[in-house]
Design a protein around this nucleic acid. Structure first.
Lengths: 157, 157
DNA sequence: CAGTATCCCAAGCGATACTG
DNA sequence: CAGTATCGCTTGGGATACTG
């Protein structure tokens, strides 16, 4: 789908993440579930669908398909995050945070993400390059950037 | 779609955001494009689709439909972000940041988000509640939370 | 202007069967 | 184990026409 993706980074990212399984595959790969059958078992995704999804993600530069060989068995592949894939982690954590808050499980969050060093819970924050922490409601100003198109309705968002 | 959404906050959020137009509608509403016709014009979305999308988002508690009346015309509605909708802003900013980096327009970013007070560019960061800034590659540890199901494959992600 | 109603199409998913 | 191939179903999007 195109939806003005030609002019908006949000749209372009949405195009990458929009289908059902993509973020869940990334989530699992990040947690170390890297092999085809493990993914099918863990996600409950149909195998043909997983095939397509992995191929798409490799094409998109988000996953790498790396060969490996275990002693005594034939060549296999596993899927690892590229740099671009790793840089989607904040998006995923942001989504997790929202889900924890607004689509909470009555038992509490199913997964807890903590700082490896100190063990405190992790969240996403908006910050500017000057290091100020920013309130999402009040602290943001959005202006057209260099790549913006000028349109009658006010340009890209 | 369900995709284990019963146990994962990422999946639950993905279910809300997954269809094509949702994030773009939110993006536009956040920028002040709040009225039906403005949205159709700005997004290029089919009107019936927008109707459905807005209804879904209102149902999901992400948008409010608030009536207003301009002098001399009949009652209209506009769509504004609820608190839950506002709390999706970090997700959107995170997506924008990724798109700017990995799906960049040759002319540069189409939209620039800056700190209203100081004008510096804004990005998302991972932080723990102790205030440490966290490296997405190395600094995260993920553990099952109270709401986790125990499954043979290692539980929810 | 702000929608609703109808109809069609394409894409994505799942089930099942097959392969090296 | 790690996929590919084929199929049918469901859903979301678009076009068009209609309404207060």
């Amino acid at each position: 789908m195109e939806y003005d993706g030609s002019v908006c980074s949000v749209a372009r990212t949405a195009a990458v993440l929009s289908d059902t399984w993509t973020v869940l595959v990334l989530r699992d790969v990040r947690h170390g579930v890297r092999r085809f059958d493990d993914l099918t078992a863990h996600l409950g995704i149909a195998r043909n669908v997983l095939t397509r999804r992995l191929a798409t993600l490799v094409d998109a530069g988000i996953l790498d398909r790396v060969p490996y060989r275990e002693a005594g068995s034939r060549l296999r592949h596993e899927y690892v995050l590229t740099q671009a894939g790793q840089d989607l982690v904040p998006v995923i954590i942001a989504m997790m945070g929202w889900g924890d808050r607004y689509r909470a499980d009555p038992d509490g969050p199913p997964m807890r993400v903590e700082h490896a060093e100190c063990g405190s819970p992790v969240h996403v924050e908006l910050r500017c390059t000057d290091g100020h922490r920013i309130d999402p409601q009040e602290g943001l100003r959005t202006t057209p950037g260099p790549g913006a198109r000028r349109t009658p309705t006010g340009g890209c968002s």
